[in-house]
């Protein structure tokens, strides 16, 4: 079953074409790695999928058109590249994760849509009784249970991103979208993050769309790859992408150009 279908999507952002007629789909259980240099339009595309960005073309969730899939939007877990919050924000890790809990009544319509299209929603955390227990379970999945009472501002970048993953998990998302989640995080923290990512894809069976510059991590974790720089250059099986030397060379060159552009 296709969880997500993106057809001919174009997005104008600040007067220029940030995304140009992109087509791809995401199947149930996929871990799709999206690669592309900075400014390739990945974040803009993600925002269109979660309903925060106007666009042309069609986006479908579980086969439903945009007009119909609105009740499913709260069921998408989204972790942005950088969450800017007040550094002294007085909230513990548990309190931040519990912000991800969504009241049952808000989920009812979405649950009906999922049932009607025959999707068996994997309710891992919702089955757990109390809200505080659900939060604890998610913290365990993200390897953060020992930090549950720490204040959010006292965490490192890698720990923070795992907190945001746990916050997205607590609602049992039907799709998890991660926008360059470990940019600027040290190698050790990145590896811990990747372990969590593998676990939630293989054990929790959550479909994931993940953008990253880390080709090595994508080659290890993803099963499918999409490569974009405003336009889509490739979409298919991981093995096909990594065996295509010409494509890898083009990607490396355009990434380098964007890198030089960013630093000039």
């Amino acid at each position: 079953m296709n969880v997500l279908e993106v057809s001919d999507v174009s997005i104008k952002y600040n007067g220029h074409l940030a995304v140009d007629k992109i087509n791809f789909n995401v199947k149930e259980g996929d871990l799709l790695g999206i690669v592309g240099p900075n400014g390739a339009g990945k974040t803009t595309l993600f925002k269109a999928i979660i309903g925060l960005q106007n666009h042309s073309g069609k986006i479908k969730l579980f086969g439903y058109d945009e007009a119909d899939y609105q009740p499913l939007l709260p069921l998408i877990g989204y972790v942005s590249q950088k969450v800017s919050f007040e550094p002294n924000f007085p909230a513990t890790v548990s309190e931040v994760v519990s912000m991800g809990l969504i009241p049952e009544k808000k989920l009812r319509k979405g649950a009906v849509l999922l049932k009607n299209c025959g999707y068996s929603w994997n309710l891992l955390y919702k089955k757990v009784g109390k809200d505080s227990d659900k939060v604890l379970e998610c913290l365990k999945t993200a390897g953060l249970e020992s930090l549950k009472d720490r204040r959010i501002g006292d965490l490192s970048g890698g720990e923070l991103q795992r907190v945001f993953i746990a916050k997205a998990l607590v609602k049992d998302p039907v799709l998890l979208i991660l926008d360059e989640p470990v940019t600027g995080v040290d190698a050790d923290a990145q590896n811990k993050f990747y372990t969590v990512l593998r676990k939630i894809n293989t054990e929790n069976k959550i479909t994931i769309v993940w953008s990253s510059h880390d080709l090595e991590a994508i080659s290890k974790l993803a099963n499918r790859v999409a490569c974009m720089n405003r336009k889509l250059f490739f979409h298919g099986e991981k093995e096909e992408f990594f065996s295509n030397k010409e494509l890898l060379k083009t990607y490396a060159e355009s990434a380098m150009q964007m890198h030089m552009h960013d630093h000039n």
């Binding site: 709260p74 912000m99 609602k171």
Partner: peptide, 18 residues
């Protein structure tokens, strides 16, 4: 309180969660 706390912490995420 829950909606306000989420809005205060991160407005974009609050919007995404409905």
């Amino acid at each position: 309180r829950k909606q306000l706390l989420h809005l205060t912490f991160d407005e974009e995420q609050a919007q995404v969660s409905g």
